[in-house]
Design a protein around this nucleic acid. Structure first.
Length: 298
DNA sequence: GGTAGACCTGGACGC
DNA sequence: GCGTCCAGGTCTACC
């Protein structure tokens, strides 16, 4: 067993990150019962699969790993968890503008704004592709299937699997991805991405550190087949760029009920509603205290 | 530069 | 049960 303590600058809340969006419900995440922390199966560069458990600590995040790690592995796990919970992010400028909007003034006190990320950009891109043109239950099913069929098993419990590396996924065959994993027409998109990453033609992980401008980052992500306007806005948000609102059918519902009496609206109305938020549009959209509430939740 | 139709699955609905 | 219809974004082809 290995323990790590990662320190966070205030304000930070691990529960706020865990509950930021649905990611914690997707394999290989498992949410703690109290919703305050999570477990995750990580496929390390050493090719070992380990289970890590992240919990809130007084001044940051306490990480427990189910096995003894080498020094190199400790560093990798620490880096991964720091990325996953967004410890490097500074949202103080967002909090400053959010104070003046009653529907967003709660974010600072609750340390809302960080979005839970997977360990790799590749995993988040694939998962995002699997959120498009389907239901949330469909997304969960597809991600679960990918992990089960193509992810490396956890030695301590071989029924559980990490998310597949690009290399493992690149070896899949398309008919199996389509039918067994139920990816349907998305199968070739995922396969092509896995193969391009494996071949070195696409480097997604460098996007964590390259510090590209939003337009440049957006252009790169849009070049991925299966990633369109909605998916790219979601991915930009995960990567810490909030200039675009991820407009899906749910966004229409929220904005329509908030400002248009439930009447049908288009993308322009959603964008108009957040036009004044500048570089914080996506956060203002995502963390707003909407009046419309879902009744048939997941 | 904008858009109709195809894509795939599962869930809702009518029989 | 079984068939039909629909929701959910993106791609391609064609203006």
């Amino acid at each position: 067993v290995t323990e790590l303590l990662l320190s966070a600058a205030s304000p930070f809340s691990l529960p706020a990150v865990v509950q930021s969006h649905g990611w914690v419900q997707l394999a290989p995440f498992v949410a703690d019962k109290d919703g305050c922390g999570f477990r995750y199966l990580a496929h390390l560069d050493s090719d070992r699969v380990v289970e890590l458990h992240a919990r809130e600590a007084p001044n940051g995040v306490q990480v427990t790993v189910d096995t003894t790690l080498t020094g190199v592995e400790r560093v990798e796990v620490a880096d991964k968890v720091r990325w996953m919970v967004g410890l490097e992010q500074d949202l103080s400028a967002f909090y400053t503008v959010a104070r003046s909007d009653p529907k967003l003034s709660h974010v600072e006190g609750q340390a809302r704004g960080r979005m839970l990320r997977s360990a790799t950009v590749f995993e988040d891109v694939v998962k995002t592709i699997l959120t498009t043109n389907t239901t949330w239950s469909g997304t969960k099913r597809m991600v679960e299937a990918l992990a089960t069929f193509y992810g490396a098993p956890l030695p301590a419990d071989e029924t559980r699997h990490a998310f597949p590396t690009p290399q493992r996924l690149a070896e899949a065959d398309e008919p199996a991805l389509r039918t067994e994993s139920k990816l349907g027409y998305r199968a070739p998109y995922v396969l092509q991405l896995a193969r391009e990453v494996t071949a070195g033609a696409v480097n997604l992980e460098e996007l964590k550190t390259l510090d590209l401008s939003t337009p440049e980052l957006r252009k790169r992500l849009l070049a991925i087949k299966g990633v369109g306007p909605y998916a790219v806005a979601s991915l930009l948000m995960l990567l810490g760029h909030y200039d675009f609102v991820p407009v899906d059918s749910w966004a229409f519902k929220l904005v329509s009920h908030e400002w248009h009496n439930g009447a049908p609206i288009g993308k322009a109305e959603v964008e108009q509603a957040f036009a004044d938020w500048g570089e914080w549009k996506a956060l203002a959209y995502w963390f707003r205290a909407w009046s419309y509430q879902e009744s048939s939740g997941q």
